[in-house]
Design a binder for these strands. Structure first.
Length: 200
DNA sequence: GCCTGGATTGTCT
DNA sequence: GACAATCCAGGCA
């Protein structure tokens, strides 16, 4: 163990400034493209996000705070992790002020560090395939690859001391991200609140 | 207290 | 392309 990443990568020590996460989720979401999600020795660049607001019929926060979504109503920079379909975990970044119930769902990552460990976590299929779409190409997949689960619900992503944190390594968000409707929802499907990095 | 449906994914045909 | 897996929040009686 320990051969998955170069030691002392200072670029991954600069966490995202919490003030960058202040605002409506649809405003903040595209600015998260290009940022890096770090968990322990693994890291990946955010390449796809979705926005969910407090008055959004498709959002978990639509009915107000509950035991499940309480962290979604915390202050900006808080992680909201939930169990989807009883099988997969999904990671959100809370935006807006405390009580707003707004968050940005991290849908896909481009693996940067700890790729070997991610592949082991993803199982035998991912062991054979290296593509980022297989490793981290979905909200459930990236949580499995980075070992993110309910234990991280409510953790602070803007603290350099957190094992799970958002890092700004200087890569700016794209000028023209690909915009489209959100995936897998049955309400408010018309809202174009999904953003993706354009093809290189 | 019961029932329904879901911000997904992997497997099978 | 279709469907099963699997847990629980929320709606409703």
């Amino acid at each position: 163990m320990g051969s998955d990443e170069p030691p002392g990568d200072r670029a991954l020590e600069r966490v995202v400034d919490r003030s960058e996460l202040v605002g409506d989720a649809p405003t903040v979401a595209p600015t998260l493209l290009g940022k890096t999600l770090v968990h322990g020795r693994c890291a990946g660049r955010i390449i796809e996000v979705e926005a969910y607001t407090g008055d959004d019929p498709a959002s978990h926060s639509r009915s107000g705070p509950t035991a499940r979504n309480a962290s979604m109503f915390e202050r900006e920079g808080t992680a909201y992790v939930y169990l989807s379909y009883g099988v997969h975990h999904c990671l959100n970044v809370v935006t807006g002020a405390r009580g707003d119930g707004q968050a940005v769902l991290i849908r896909a990552l481009e693996p940067l560090r700890g790729v070997g460990l991610m592949r082991r976590r993803r199982g035998p299929v991912a062991e054979r395939l290296v593509s980022s779409a297989v490793l981290c190409g979905g909200p459930g997949k990236l949580c499995q690859a980075l070992a993110v689960d309910l234990a991280h619900d409510g953790s602070d992503l803007c603290s350099p001391r957190s094992t799970l944190r958002l890092v700004d390594d200087g890569i700016p968000p794209p000028d023209l991200p690909i915009v489209g409707p959100r995936v897998g929802i049955s309400r408010a499907v018309e809202r174009p609140w999904r953003w993706r990095m354009p093809a290189q």
